[in-house]
């Protein structure tokens, strides 16, 4: 027997209990959905789960509008990852600069505190006027909505370095640059990841909002089109796609964090 199935078998054995609860949990949801659908009488307003899932999987081969559902998802993901990547670079650099330099903090913080509470969707009209109707305006909204979380957390991380560790590094002869790259930055990484995790969720929400308001593709567009055509099934297909992608994004993020912050885990 090859190694992977053996591993998978072990995983199933170890997580049997948890998996069972997941199955029960989703069964409850589906049952409630089915009952609601039947109670509402018509198949129109709350389409039954089976119909929605049928439409969902059909959409893998039969396009909704111009694209199949996978293509819509890929378009949305491309926007999210572009905006999120820019937000990560800007957020980490700005946050750490604010953390290590009082001057940068004094200048950047007031602006930052002003921008922070503005919800990303408030930028949508301006962003459309600035960047046009295509993907660029979504990337901007994703960026503006998510970089604040990364900045705040990077700042906190850079501020909360154990001063004794800096002292220890100095005693061992480390230069300022080495102290920055080997002590301050790694020490901030768990904080940064906490910020990235939130920011990725916000990015996804911002992208969907922007697509719902105006777009010609993407999973948000599926919903808007469904609404315009009175197609409830299509709306629900869009919602399922949004949920699945959101879940996958945060799972991938946690896995990356677990890999990079191995040292931060409690000893088994």
């Amino acid at each position: 027997m090859s190694r992977i199935p053996a591993k998978l078998q072990r995983w199933f054995r170890q997580n049997r209990q948890a998996l069972l609860w997941v199955v029960i949990s989703f069964s409850c949801l589906l049952a409630a959905w089915q009952i609601a659908s039947m109670a509402s009488g018509g198949r129109l307003q709350i389409p039954p789960p089976l119909e929605v899932f049928q439409a969902f999987f059909t959409a893998f081969v039969k396009p909704i509008g111009q694209n199949t559902i996978l293509e819509h998802a890929a378009i949305s993901l491309g926007r999210v990852l572009s905006g999120f990547a820019v937000a990560t670079v800007v957020g980490v650099v700005l946050g750490i600069a604010m953390g290590v330099s009082d001057a940068v903090y004094a200048i950047a913080n007031p602006i930052f505190e002003f921008v922070r509470p503005i919800p990303p969707i408030a930028w949508i009209p301006l962003s459309i006027l600035w960047f046009g109707l295509g993907s660029a305006n979504k990337v901007f909204i994703i960026f503006i909505g998510s970089f604040t979380y990364i900045t705040i957390n990077s700042y906190e991380g850079a501020r909360n370095v154990d001063p004794q560790l800096i002292g220890a590094a100095q005693m061992l002869g480390a230069s300022r640059l080495r102290i920055f790259t080997k002590i301050i930055f790694p020490s901030a990484v768990p904080y940064i990841f906490a910020g990235l995790q939130i920011a990725l969720g916000v990015s996804w929400a911002a992208d969907v909002a922007a697509e719902i308001i105006y777009s010609q593709s993407g999973v948000g567009w599926i919903i808007t089109m469904g609404m315009n055509n009175g197609n409830y099934t299509q709306i629900m297909v869009g919602i399922i796609a949004i949920g699945v992608i959101g879940y996958l994004l945060s799972t991938v993020m946690r896995a990356v964090e677990g890999r990079l912050c191995r040292w931060n885990r409690q000893a088994k």
Partner: peptide, 25 residues
């Protein structure tokens, strides 16, 4: 060289990373 009460090891470095930090620096 200082040995600290709370060890003050760099938690993101392995034993080798910690011990070789001085000579590398």
């Amino acid at each position: 060289g200082v040995v600290y009460q709370t060890t003050a090891l760099f938690p993101w470095m392995t034993v080798m990373g910690n011990v070789s930090f001085g000579p590398l620096a």
